[in-house]
């Protein structure tokens, strides 16, 4: 018995992937399945569809979802508007670029809760009233690096000879940018959008801290459900979240395939 087992057990490259597969199963697949199961269970662990009914008939739930989507879209656009020029100039500048990139990444090494609390203190000291404005600021501040990084990687990966060729053919700066660099960095823009949009519609700590709980977003709502022992409805809401994630990554993937430019980061 032991002999046959050892014979079958071969040290191939595949063996090294087992820990990762196990990890994925335990910490990604199992929780997802649990969410799926909980969505169909009531408090006495009987099958029910009432969780879906509770969610889709509640004014505040849908209201909160819409609110979160608005906040997500606006945050993403602001991030893109700030992030693209930043990434563009970062990849153009030669020596200073690396330091600047580091400066952008540096805040990411600090825990985001601490960062957000610090932001709150600054607003308090400046006598700024906490509300939608401060929440949006916090979101942009926290997720900007996620926009800049993929853009930076893609833009700096564009072969210089393309721009040189455009120049040779008589294109000015504007035309070069719009005809060459922008189309070639679409994949970066798309992955940046996904990286920012999805987390912003699901965060809860930032909105809670930077508005004293007055701005109530989808993530806050899910958190409330779980802390109040309403696992069923909370799971349904997580599923809704998951649908958004899947849909957006599906769209992004399609675009990327059409463009035929591999994503270099994420």
């Amino acid at each position: 018995m032991a002999k046959s087992l050892t014979k079958k057990f071969k040290m191939t490259k595949r063996v090294f992937s087992y820990p990762y597969i196990l990890f994925m199963l335990l910490f990604v697949v199992v929780p997802l399945v649990m969410i799926l199961v909980y969505a169909f269970l009531d408090n006495d662990h009987q099958f029910t569809l009432s969780n879906f009914q509770t969610f889709f008939t509640s004014r505040s739930s849908l209201y909160v979802l819409g609110n979160s989507l608005f906040v997500g879209v606006i945050t993403t656009v602001i991030c893109l508007l700030i992030g693209y020029p930043a990434a563009y100039f970062l990849s153009k500048s030669k020596s200073g670029g690396k330091v600047m990139v580091l400066l952008f990444i540096l805040p990411m090494w600090v825990n985001f809760l601490i960062r957000t609390l610090a932001t709150k203190e600054i607003f308090m000291a400046m006598n700024v009233e906490l509300g939608m404005g401060t929440v949006l600021f916090g979101m942009v501040y926290n997720y900007l690096p996620f926009m800049i990084l993929p853009l930076h990687t893609v833009i700096s990966g564009i072969d210089k000879s393309y721009t040189e060729a455009a120049r040779d053919l008589g294109a000015d700066d504007m035309t070069t940018f719009f005809k060459v660099i922008l189309p070639m960095s679409v994949s970066g823009i798309l992955s940046g959008i996904t990286m920012v949009f999805i987390p912003t519609i699901s965060t809860f700590a930032i909105s809670q801290l930077l508005s004293n709980g007055k701005i109530f977003l989808f993530g806050d709502s899910i958190e409330l459900k779980f802390s109040q022992d309403m696992y069923g409805v909370g799971s349904v809401m997580s599923l809704v979240m998951l649908v958004f994630v899947l849909v957006s990554s599906f769209i992004m993937n399609r675009y990327n395939k059409n463009k035929n430019v591999g994503r270099t980061l994420w």
């Binding site: 004014r59 505040s60 709980g213 109530f216 709502s221």
Partner: peptide
Amino acid sequence: KMWENAKT
């Protein structure tokens, strides 16, 4: 539910 509505 009431509480969530009020908070929203």
